[in-house]
Design a protein around this nucleic acid. Structure first.
Lengths: 158, 158
DNA sequence: CGGATAATGTTATGATCCATAACAAACTAA
DNA sequence: TTAGTTTGTTATGGATCATAACATTATCCG
């Protein structure tokens, strides 16, 4: 049996973790999210809030259920997000007239302004990313990441 | 002002979120982690536990502080992880004789077996990823993700 | 040496994000 | 109408992240 060094190693050994997609993915995501957040100058505080504002802004009257499907989150977890955005007067829950269970989400005027500003900040963030990767590298990355998302649904018993 | 559709849209519009690195990164990470977890057949339950076991296994006698530096996590957040692994008898905290503040982390025999098994499961997971991306695509992805991690430290006030 | 300073592990606490289960109200379909 | 489903919600718990504070111990330096 080979005995590894018993002393406190002064050379860091990540045990090939940096060759595993999941691990590097996690580190990269934290770095990118941190840069995104640091670059936001308005009320938008998190990538999650940004995503909700962006999709509601593009799809006025969207229900919470459909928004959840789009974003890949659970209905139960959206409630607090909308609660918060509503308390900031960025989003409204208008009751649907055709289906009294569901709400039609709308941006308020303030929400519209906040979204526009957040999009500008996001563009600068994205430019920083592109400066690191190159335009081609960024496009390639997006394509690979999109493929990885397929790991999700294909999981069943064969 | 352009008025977007007020009806419940039947065509999903992600508002270009899928063209933003941070968003796709998040979705991909969730998918990859889910696949990793689904593929683990032993006691290892999360990528975090796997990372700790792997690094401790490769660096016996490592202190908690150095482990935290390697993994990029905070000392305070490692405590519960080690507590848990110790309660499963996978890891031991041996007091250091040269520095009575710090612990020397070691895998137990059970920890060693659990790590070996987790590594085998991880290899199958990684093979699934490679089947999706191709070997070259996977290597290119790792390189781009590593670049993204640089966003982290370079953030200061200019 | 001794006193300031720094590092280590820990506790406490809070935020974010994800997941499940249960439920009332409302819709849909047989 | 009855049975089943969908919608938004509450409650709850787990995993990770962050900060601040603290006792113990090391280290640095005059």
């Amino acid at each position: 049996m080979s005995r590894a060094p018993l002393r406190e190693p002064d050379t860091a050994d990540l045990a090939d973790l940096d060759q595993q997609v999941g691990y590097v993915l996690r580190r990269a995501q934290l770095a990118v999210f941190a840069d995104f957040i640091a670059g936001q100058t308005g009320v938008v505080a998190t990538p999650g809030q940004f995503a909700v504002l962006a999709v509601v802004g593009r799809n006025p009257g969207l229900s919470q259920s459909r928004l959840c499907e789009l974003l890949g989150i659970k209905r139960a977890n959206l409630v607090a997000v909308i609660d918060h955005l509503e308390s900031l007067d960025l989003v409204r829950r208008d009751p649907s007239v055709t289906d009294r269970r569901s709400n039609r989400l709308q941006l308020t005027a303030a929400g519209d302004r906040a979204l526009k500003r957040a999009i500008e900040d996001e563009a600068r963030h994205e430019a920083r990313v592109t400066r690191l990767l190159g335009a081609g590298g960024r496009a390639a990355l997006l394509k690979q990441l999109a493929k990885l998302c397929e790991l999700d649904s294909s999981r069943s018993f064969p």
